[in-house]
Amino acid sequence: MTTENPTIEAFEGFATVASPGVAAVAFIPREHYKSVVAALKADAFEMASDVCGVDYLIAGARTLPEGVKPERFEVVTSLLSMSRRIRVRIRVQLPDADPTVDSLFDLYPGTEAMERETFDLVGIRFAGHPDLSRILLPEEWEGHPLRKDYGIGGVPVQFKSTPGPR
């Protein structure tokens, strides 16, 4: 969307790749996640447009830049700078054993619902989130449906005749 590729200072020192529609996609270790986002916020990224989680358990192919250790889970955050009219995306790798990452709630309160949704459907925990409860599924639901080891849960389609005389 922008012709020249603007440099994002906050991403210096981290692995980045290009992707259509965004200025850069950065791979940030989870220890630095919050501080990098804070730096981005200071750098005129006014809005967090999206947070979502991906479970890479059974992915066929997946290319990551040098030095990024692939883990099962990934949190993908899209930030938008309205004044510079660019987007950036951050991908954070999270291990299966402890899929926890810092919440962005303090920086962007608008991520509240998105993080809850990610927790609900993918089962990623956000440390510091004010109210991490299920948002879409009933409270007593077990499991996280968007994980790849969770089946789609369909029932086989049966064709049955109408009971009784017509």
Binding site: I152, G153, V155
Partner: peptide
């Protein structure tokens, strides 16, 4: 009537 195209965990069939 049947769940339609959404034969999955979330929809009552």
């Amino acid at each position: 009537s049947t769940g339609g195209m959404f034969n999955n965990y979330a929809v009552v069939q």
